[in-house]
Nucleic acid binder design. Structure first.
Lengths: 238, 238
DNA sequence: GCAGAAGTTTGCTCCAGAGCAACATCCGGT
DNA sequence: ACCGGATGTTGCTCTGGAGCAAACTTCTGC
């Protein structure tokens, strides 16, 4: 029963799922209906792969709910997180950038709901649906910008700055207001953060302890709340 | 006379300049003629900016001859090289990824010849010229892949491995066979190499000295020849 | 041919942060 | 309630490579 990535062809997907998402926002109800009828809906639990680096890119995806980490795995088995993707974005769009295999692995960070379509529909989507291509390429552009930023950070900043910045980015993308600050909306371990900032979980742990003593953050197991974002910004600038 | 970036509207550009370059290779002579007639040709000396990060992306470019470094400049003024672009590739294609400013600065590494078009022609190119969009997005995809690799390298490898890999990439992209090995085809300083690998020129210098003693490379001022690529590959794996 | 600039080499010191180890804490399953 | 496996904390050591300083070499312009 608890089949790992659960495939569920839901009775009928509601159009409102897509109408407000940028790649589809300019479309008519009828078009969205067609798109949804071609989609496969699937629920993944936390920590499983949606697709894997190097595999043929036979589907593309829209993350409806949850969070996905885009990771690369090195020859020695270490994982490096390249990107976090929040709900409402396309992923696995290798086809858009002329690749026929996925350039990285996508792992769910939380339980997630994902729609997907076979890649052969890609060209149809681009041709038929007004604004789809443009919005997709904006996403690509945004991710290129993020990657650029990551490179600069890795190249020039100290660990403390990188971790501070990573935390800020996470609360920006996925922050949820709680009493006492802004909490990262999904479970994240010290180890996850260390993969995101290219350091060790030990160093992350030490930094968080230090910040907690100074009242900048509040952290429990797999949970981090930022109490003083501004102080983190200052740290992040170095 | 020696006006820094020299603008030269050459008497007439020859069609053969573009016919064998991927974004244009499927086009007819007549179409290429039109494209060339709309282009501005310009020569840049080494070490000048073609366009700058953050400026409005009002033109897109094709590098006909030379090499260009794509760099980002940090708040503290350090430069980080994100990418090297060899002749025959498009650059400054912010428009393709939905951006209206350039996400990075492009600096010539050597004297270079560049064609450019106003960005408002972009949509026309995409619509009218078969294969143009596809090939462009392949380029984007390739660069995304490179950036990903850079991130992984920065996150997991030691300096020696990074420098070895950078050298290998350079000779792959721009290597010229000479007696005794493969030489990087443009002048490159220890400092350039350090910006490419996120280290200091001192460390690069030490590494090169060491490798030279072991017969792996041969380096003069601004010139590096790789004598034993295979040994570098081994070093690069760590 | 000379002066100054640009690029390179090398020695020395120092420290951020990795690596290792040991322990503490929490959580889920039976 | 208990056990075992994740997860988190903290102390200690050690080292890669940054930072600084000084000298050397090669170019460029006058």
């Amino acid at each position: 029963m608890n089949d790992h990535p659960t495939r569920k062809t839901l009775p009928r997907l509601d159009e409102s799922l897509l109408t407000h998402l940028p790649p589809f926002s300019r479309l008519e109800k009828r078009q969205i209906r067609t798109i949804l009828d071609q989609a496969t809906s699937r629920r993944y639990e936390a920590g499983v792969a949606v697709f894997r680096e190097g595999h043929p890119a036979d589907r593309f995806y829209m993350l409806l709910d949850g969070y996905v980490r885009v990771v690369r795995i090195t020859a020695t088995g270490e994982q490096v997180t390249a990107l976090h993707i929040p709900a409402g974005q396309l992923l696995g769009i290798a086809r858009a950038i002329g690749r026929d295999t996925y350039p990285a692995t996508a792992m769910t960070a939380t339980e997630s709901i994902v729609l997907s379509w076979p890649t052969r529909l890609w060209d149809t989507f681009v041709a038929e649906y007004d604004g789809f291509a443009t919005e997709t390429y904006k996403t690509v552009g945004h991710r290129v910008g993020e990657m650029n930023t990551r490179i600069v950070e890795l190249a020039t900043q100290q660990v403390e700055q990188r971790v501070a910045n990573a935390l800020l980015r996470l609360i920006n993308q996925t922050g949820r207001k709680v009493e006492g600050g802004i909490e990262i909306d999904f479970p994240i371990t010290r180890h996850d953060l260390s993969e995101l900032t290219a350091t060790t979980l030990h160093t992350v742990s030490r930094l968080l302890s230090g910040w907690e003593k100074r009242g900048l953050v509040l952290s429990k197991r797999k949970r981090i709340t930022v109490c003083d974002p501004h102080a983190l910004v200052v740290l992040g600038q170095g």
